[in-house]
């Protein structure tokens, strides 16, 4: 659906996007991650035809973004980062206008208006002036606009930016619904969001791709290790040493006593699970324990690891 080859954008001498190459298949839900200023918005603007690449090329559904820009743009439903809307228009009027300039008309336009307002939960505000809407509703109007011409590809730049947790959930579930029949590319900072909705992650930093893979693969390949938390009754002086002696255990941290229970963090090699061995050690040594919990690496760890400045 999207295929980018060596996409580069320089603003004067500053390179915002540097030789980006990636592909997105039809039906994928892609999380586009990167710290502030990584070049996400710039990449998205190139893909949507708003600014031309300095070098390199990309195709949307087979159409070149520069040579067949109009065809390429028609395939995309795009919601920009700040969700710009016409403040003085009413919601239904705005969506109607957007539908018309995207080439819809007559009864088809009317049907689509009804559909997107239903889908995005805009029924009750359709007569309201856009400037009177809350941020959550503005975001929904932006989504409805992106959807109105039934695009094959949705590109959303930080769709949950600045929303409260309830709104974030409902927008997220909306995106999840939308993703069932389309290709979606979402840029975001919220990593848990990506873990929930995306089946592919592209991480960029300072304009360069750091990783592009399934979230699970990224987590598994992470160089940083996972760890196991063990809570034992009372402090056991020999525990750190004995735990350390087990296979694949790299380090043992003692978090100290709390209400009679002592917590140890056992750092293990990536991709290994020491819980069974720790449990048998506890039984063998006759330690009383109440929890043995594995903390897997999360996408957040991957993100931090890949975009660390040092």
């Amino acid at each position: 659906m999207i295929s980018a080859q060596n996409l580069t954008k320089a603003f004067g001498s500053r390179v915002a996007v540097d030789n980006l190459s990636f592909t997105v298949d039809k039906g994928d839900v892609v999380g586009f991650l990167g710290p502030n200023g990584a070049g996400k918005t710039t990449t998205i603007r190139m893909l949507t035809g708003y600014i031309p690449p300095t070098r390199g090329s990309a195709t949307i559904a087979g159409y070149d973004i520069v040579k067949e820009s109009k065809k390429a743009r028609q395939q995309i439903g795009y919601m920009p980062e700040s969700v710009p809307l016409y403040e003085d228009m009413r919601v239904s009027e705005f969506l109607k206008f957007r539908g018309k300039i995207k080439g819809l008309s007559g009864s088809h336009l009317k049907d689509r208006l009804g559909d997107v307002m239903e889908q995005c939960g805009l029924r009750e505000v359709k007569r309201r002036l856009i400037k009177t809407l809350s941020k959550g509703f503005r975001q929904r109007v932006g989504l409805a606009d992106a959807l109105i011409h039934e695009p094959e590809l949705l590109i959303l730049d930080e769709p949950t930016n600045g929303l409260d947790p309830i709104q974030i959930r409902s927008i997220r579930s909306l995106i999840k619904d939308l993703a069932q029949e389309r290709t979606v590319m979402v840029s975001t900072h919220i990593l848990s969001e990506v873990e929930l909705i995306a089946n592919k992650v592209v991480i960029i930093d300072r304009g360069q791709i750091k990783a592009a893979d399934k979230p699970a693969n990224l987590v598994n390949n992470l160089r940083t290790a996972g760890s196991v938390l063990l809570e034992t009754k009372g402090k056991i002086d020999t525990a750190p040493e004995l735990l350390k002696a087990l296979d694949h255990v790299k380090k043992v941290k003692d978090f100290g006593l709390k209400e009679g229970w002592n917590t140890y963090e056992v750092v293990v090699d990536a991709g290994t699970d020491a819980r069974e061995r720790i449990a048998s050690l506890c039984l063998q040594e006759n330690w009383q324990f109440r929890s043995l919990h594995r903390q897997g690496a999360s996408l957040e760890d991957v993100f931090v690891e890949l975009t660390r400045q040092d």
Binding site: Y50, Y78, P80, P84, L85, Y86, E87, R98, K102
Partner: peptide, 14 residues
Amino acid sequence: KSGTLECLLTTQIE
């Protein structure tokens, strides 16, 4: 200023 130019020019209009 409001950014709506981006919305307009990323649709099929020239």
